[in-house]
């Protein structure tokens, strides 16, 4: 449910009494309502659903996830116990 996509706030303005913003998603820009993220600033990332920003992305938390995943990768390498040397299915399906 609830397709929501991360984008960067590139402009904040008022329209019909509502706090709105332009959100940039890798070069595609659309408008979103910022009423539910009153603290957001230009340059921050938000998650947008149905034309509404619903959260301010926590960059620190995101960075920590990646640090943890990389740690996992390194741990695996240290153990030298790559569970699947080649876990993926072969390049082409066989007949």
């Amino acid at each position: 449910m609830c397709l929501a996509v991360p984008g960067k706030v590139v402009a904040i303005f008022e329209e019909n009494g509502l706090r709105m913003g332009h959100i940039d998603y890798a070069g595609t820009v659309n408008r979103a309502c910022l009423e539910y993220v009153p603290e957001i600033e230009v340059g921050q990332y938000t998650v947008v659903h149905a034309g509404f920003a619903i959260s301010v992305i926590d960059e620190q938390e995101a960075a920590q996830s990646f640090a943890a995943w990389r740690e996992l990768t390194e741990a695996v390498h240290r153990n030298g116990t790559d569970l699947f040397g080649n876990p993926l299915p072969p390049e082409e399906p066989t007949e």
Binding site: K8, A26, F66, V76, F84
Partner: peptide, 23 residues
Amino acid sequence: MKYSDEYRDPALARRLVEEIHRT
């Protein structure tokens, strides 16, 4: 797209999959 592309990294995905199998 930031906060999207990097979450599709095949190498990291493979590590998580291995970890699930291990667990």
